[in-house]
Amino acid sequence: MEKNGSGFSTVTQRGRLIYVEARLQGGAPWGFTLKGGLEHGEALIISKVEEGGKAGLLQHPLQPGDQVVNINEVELSGFRQEAISLVKGSYKTLRLTVCR
């Protein structure tokens, strides 16, 4: 687990799936955009990672197409609005687990 000014991340492989746990620090903006969600009949994924943003500066950066599984240790139901509320409610630290 390596640290930098924006946070740190770890990678775990479970079977054929790779899980990235990212801890972003310092407050919003976090540097990524979400799309999809159950309300659209799609998986909740990261659609964009801002160049130079916190999500892109991690040792294991978040990537477009990563499926969001967990935010701040809350298992997601898959609805985008729920995820946005959890992200917006993160004051200093945002913990994300994604699956790729």
Rank of each mutant, 00 (worst) to 15 (best):
G56R: 04
L58C: 13
W30A: 03
L17V: 11
L58V: 07
P29N: 07
I84T: 14
A22S: 09
G37F: 07
R23H: 13
Q67A: 02
L76R: 00
V87Y: 07
L62E: 03
G37R: 04
G52D: 06
G31V: 06
M1N: 05
K54S: 11
P61Q: 02
L24P: 04
E51A: 05
K88E: 04
I84V: 13
E51G: 10
E73K: 10
K35E: 12
L86E: 06
Q81V: 12
E50F: 15
H60A: 07
E75I: 00
N70M: 08
G7T: 13
H40V: 14
G65K: 03
E39I: 03
M1Y: 12
G26C: 10
H40Y: 14
S90V: 01
L57W: 06
G89F: 05
K92T: 06
G78T: 05
L96V: 05
G27R: 11
L86G: 08
E73Y: 12
R16P: 02
K48Y: 13
I84R: 14
E42T: 02
Q59I: 03
D66I: 06
T93M: 09
E75S: 08
K3G: 05
N70R: 02
F8N: 13
H40P: 04
V98A: 03
Q67Y: 00
V69I: 04
E50W: 13
W30T: 06
G89A: 11
Q25L: 05
T33I: 02
N70E: 10
G26W: 08
H40Q: 13
G41E: 14
L96P: 02
S9W: 02
L76Y: 00
E50M: 08
G53H: 00
I46H: 02
G89W: 12
K88R: 10
I46S: 01
G41Y: 13
K92H: 00
S9C: 11
R100C: 10
G65T: 01
Q81D: 10
R95V: 07
G53R: 11
Q63R: 15
T12C: 05
K54Y: 09
I71K: 01
N72H: 04
N72Y: 02
L94D: 15
E82H: 13
F79A: 02
L57E: 15
G41M: 15
G31S: 11
I71G: 00
L96K: 15
V49I: 12
G41F: 10
K54W: 00
G31Y: 08
V98I: 11
V49L: 03
L24S: 11
V20G: 03
E82D: 10
G78H: 05
Q59K: 13
S47W: 05
G89P: 11
G37P: 08
H60S: 12
K35G: 07
T97R: 14
G26N: 03
M1P: 04
Q63H: 06
